[in-house]
Simulated scan of single mutants.
Amino acid sequence: MSENSSLTPQEVADILKIAKTTVYELIKRGELNAYRIGRRVRVEQSDVEDYKNRSKNLNNVNIKGFNNNNISKNKTINSTPILNFNNNDIIKTYNSNGEEQIKTNYNTILNNNIVLMAGEDVLLDILSRYLSSHPKGAKTMLSCVSSYKSLVSLYEGEAQIATCHLWDGKTGEYNIPYIEKLLPGIPAVIVHLSSRTQGFYVKKGNPKKIKNWEDLRRKDITIANRENGSGTRVLLDQHLKLLGISSQDIKGYNEKYLTHLTVASVVSSGKADLGLGIEKAAFQVQGIDFIPLQKEKYDLVIKKEDLNNLPFKALIEILNSENFRIELDGIGGYDLSETGKIVEI
């Protein structure tokens, strides 16, 4: 095999013009072949071309990536294949040089002096890199799980930092009602990371003239939904409850997708008329429009007893640093006006 045909996740991201985190999602879902050399993830140029060719005709591709007929055999090169992992077991690692690595379960990390952050957003990749390279920081791992499972991981001691964007329809509050329920009796603090805009992805030109939550009552609309426990899925379910709409009356409700980007792509392909997700993903997918509906809080959650430990002091310094904010500003799609704000629960 030629070394020139072996690509890093970042090189694949550059070729496909997507975020590096999306490359990991494609690998995780079996849509893109990958292998490991030691602890490094690599992708063959030929597999990138195969993926591009399959993606040109979305009607013939299972975008969700759950159909085994669309998953090629795993590749290995004196190493362990990294495909067919459980979705909840993918853990990204950032060492002191800010280099990204990947692990496959909690068991390999519990006894190490590291910080495990549970959640999924490109902001977390950046924060993990900063924290790993900070002189007072620590080696950082990122477990890609939903908001609900992130809080459960914090409660069970499997993570030191949880991330969530869970809206409570009864109080109109983000995150606090869920933290109080899922971390019973545990003093915790919220550290605000960013605010994001949630809304509907619709086909370019909005041919169905979709406007707001009330359109979920319509019988002529099919949706692309998110997985249980994700902040976006909880947001949808809370609004359905407020509107008195049964999920059984919504076409596509049981079709679950793992990321905002995949939902937007499904709408773009015409397989769904509507999908709920954050505004940033709408910038990355062609052929869709975005209808803003609600501003959400995306927060970090830490046990209060850990806040004065060095890695967490470094975390607060990073969130309030000019360099970190400049990098996030360059990404776009995030409101950083309250980044670093701390609220005790």
Rank of each mutant, 00 (worst) to 15 (best):
N212A: 08
I291D: 09
V266W: 01
R196V: 13
K297W: 06
I161C: 11
I102C: 05
R36F: 07
L328M: 15
N107M: 13
I126S: 11
I161F: 09
G277Q: 09
H192E: 14
I176D: 00
S153P: 00
G252W: 01
M117K: 08
L276M: 09
I126C: 03
I91F: 10
C144D: 11
E120Y: 14
L242A: 13
L116S: 01
T259E: 07
D249Q: 12
S128N: 10
T163S: 15
Q45W: 04
E317V: 02
V122N: 10
S247C: 05
Y201H: 12
T8L: 13
K73A: 12
G185W: 03
K208G: 06
W167C: 03
Y178L: 06
E100C: 12
K341T: 13
Q286C: 04
N60Y: 00
E158M: 14
S195C: 09
L240H: 05
K149V: 00
F312A: 07
G137P: 06
K73S: 13
G185K: 02
T197M: 15
N254Q: 13
N112R: 15
Y130N: 01
N57M: 02
I77S: 06
E322M: 06
D168C: 14
N225I: 00
F312N: 04
L307Q: 04
E255C: 01
Y298F: 15
I77C: 02
N4H: 10
D215K: 10
N112V: 05
Y174H: 10
T21P: 00
I278P: 00
L242G: 00
E99I: 08
K280V: 01
S150M: 04
F324P: 02
I114S: 12
H260V: 09
I190S: 07
G157C: 11
L110M: 12
V41M: 06
T93K: 13
N107C: 08
D249M: 02
K295M: 11
